[in-house]
Every structure is written in structure tokens, then in C-alpha cells.
Amino acid sequence: MPKLIKDRAVVDDAWTLVREGSIDELPVTPVIIPLGLWQQHRDALHERRDVGVWLAPSDDPDALAGDVSSLSLIAVDFPQFTDGRGYSTARLLREKYAFAGELRAIGDILRDQLYYLQECGFNAFAVRSDRDAAQALRGLDDFSDNYQATVARPLPLFRRRPEADRDVATQSS
């Protein structure tokens, strides 16, 4: 079974990614389908709890506004890791639409982008199949904090800074 980084651990990936296909060919196992297919067959597929949807870089997350509470998995595709639209897609899903399920980065997913992806709200990473997921896992710890407000740390550093400094002062005294 392919490997996946989820919630900071390497796990087996039970989901099948369907890049394109028809409703009749969908496997009966958990499956991630394109937005277009979901939109066509939303009512029929709502019965299945094991259907996730993936968004292309140009897909508007608003298209899933009505589904965020019922979907357990949304994936965002990165055809090339240099195409950064998915970072904003993820952030909007988490912050604007309050999606609380698994948010998975798929496509050209590499170790050196994992930290920023995590900060934008992804908690699962389908690392490119020719790379070792266990190695890539280390990328999640490239930095220990951020200046900005992010999904992972909703308060920017300037709202935490005095407090954090006080902690250190206490520890060192």
C-alpha cells in the first residue's frame, strides 16, 4: 500500500486517487475524485462516506462550500510544486469555509515544501512516489515558528511575543 504522511506520521494510504473517470468505474474502496465528477453526482455519492474530492489549482474552493461539513477528505493538487495556488486554496478551506477534515496535498509533493504546506492547513501529504516519505517527514520541522498568522498557528508572533519572552525569562531565573 502506498505511503502517506498524515498528522506527522508515515501511514498506509487507504484511499485511491482517481484522476479522471466515470461514476460507474469508481472502486468500492475509499476514493478521491475530481471536483467535476463530484458536482455531477453529488446526490448519489453523498450516501458514501468514503468519497473525497480533489481540487485542481484553478478550482474555486467555494464550489465545496456546501460540502465541507460532510466531506471527510479534500485534496488539493499541485501539478508542479512551483504552482502556489493550492496554498491559498487550503487556507481558504480551513479559514473561510472551516473545513475540519483531512486536507491532503497531492501531486508534486516534496520535502522542501512540506513546512509551508502544513502552515497553510494541510495535515496530510502524498509525497511523490519516487521519494521516501520517511525522509520527507523531516521537512515538517524545518522551522519551529512563524512570524505570520497561519492556519497552524492562528496568532501571529507579534501577538505572542511578549508572552513567549516572559516564559523564557521565568525558565532562566
Binding site: F81, T82, D83, G84, Y87, S88, R91, Q113, Y115, Y116, L117, E119, C120, F143, N146, Y147, Q148, T150, P156, L157, F158
Partner: peptide, 16 residues
Amino acid sequence: ELLRQWSTFHPEFAYL
């Protein structure tokens, strides 16, 4: 300086 900090390692805008 505020903008320097905000823009430094901004996770959402590194691949514009």
C-alpha cells in the same frame, strides 16, 4: 520592519 517580518517565510506566498 513589520512588513519584513510579515513577508519573511510567509507560507502562503512563497510560490507566487
